[in-house]
Amino acid sequence: MVRVWIRVALFIISWLSVIFLPNKKAIFVKYLPVSLFSSLTVMCEIFYFTTHKLWTVKGGQENQTHTAFLLLFGPYTVLTIWFFYLSKGKFLLYAFINLAADLIYAFPIIALLKKFDIYKIKVKSINFFLLIFADALLNFGFQKVIENIYPKTNNFPKN
């Protein structure tokens, strides 16, 4: 039961953090495509990890599906929007924010999630870090393509 509450709390807290975004509608219009793209990318990775038994969740397939959904459309989606908002399109700042966040996630947070028996990843932490950091760089490239296709999104909302 504690595992369920932790997953749900992560989902709710991440969406509550959106309250602190200024001009929410404009920020969502600008960053929702990249956030959905990144969620789709991670969903494919979860599928691969699940198929090859590199990611396990206690409680079977149903718990694994719930965990994936709550993480993808909770913290992962919201943090993608936050990281793009905070970096304001500057690559080095975006890379630094993701470097710090991905290091924290790949090492202490994954270890904590294992300890609470939320889920286990059977990949070395450094390899997992490299994967999620590569995802972040891919997301930045995708956002730049979107901004070139839809130039009006380049006008960042005023704070």
Rank of each mutant, 00 (worst) to 15 (best):
M1Q: 10
M1E: 09
V2K: 08
V4N: 10
I6P: 03
V8T: 11
V8M: 12
V8D: 12
F11S: 00
F11T: 01
F11C: 04
I12P: 06
S14P: 07
S14I: 04
W15A: 09
L16P: 08
L16S: 05
V18H: 01
I19W: 14
L21P: 06
P22W: 03
A26G: 06
I27N: 14
F28Q: 01
F28R: 02
P33F: 03
P33N: 08
V34E: 13
L36M: 07
L36T: 06
S38I: 09
S38T: 12
S39N: 07
L40G: 15
T41S: 09
C44M: 14
E45N: 10
I46R: 15
I46H: 13
Y48I: 09
Y48R: 02
F49K: 10
T50I: 02
T51A: 10
T51Y: 14
T51D: 10
K53R: 13
K53W: 08
W55I: 00
T56R: 02
K58P: 05
G59F: 01
G60H: 02
E62R: 06
E62T: 14
E62H: 10
E62M: 04
N63D: 12
N63Q: 08
T67L: 12
L70Q: 00
L71G: 07
L72I: 05
L72C: 08
F73I: 05
F73N: 06
G74P: 04
G74K: 05
P75F: 00
Y76H: 13
T77G: 09
T77P: 01
V78I: 14
L79V: 12
L79T: 12
W82N: 01
F83W: 00
F84N: 10
F84P: 07
Y85H: 14
L86R: 07
G89E: 01
G89P: 04
K90F: 13
F91D: 03
F91H: 00
L93R: 06
A95L: 13
L99I: 15
L99F: 14
A100T: 15
D102N: 14
D102R: 11
D102F: 06
L103R: 05
L103C: 08
I104D: 06
Y105G: 10
P108Q: 13
P108G: 11
I109R: 09
I110A: 10
K114G: 12
K115M: 08
K115T: 07
I118T: 13
Y119T: 03
K120L: 03
V123C: 00
K124E: 06
K124R: 04
S125L: 08
I126V: 07
N127S: 05
F128I: 05
F128S: 13
F128T: 11
F129E: 02
L130E: 02
L130P: 01
D135F: 04
A136S: 15
A136G: 02
L137C: 14
L138I: 15
F140C: 01
G141Q: 03
Q143G: 05
Q143P: 01
Q143D: 11
V145Y: 09
I146L: 12
I146C: 03
N148D: 13
I149N: 11
I149D: 11
Y150N: 06
Y150A: 13
Y150F: 15
P151Q: 02
K152Q: 00
K152R: 12
K152I: 07
T153W: 14
N154Y: 03
N154V: 05
N154D: 10
N155G: 01
N155Q: 09
F156S: 02
F156Y: 15
P157I: 00
K158G: 08
K158Q: 09
K158I: 10
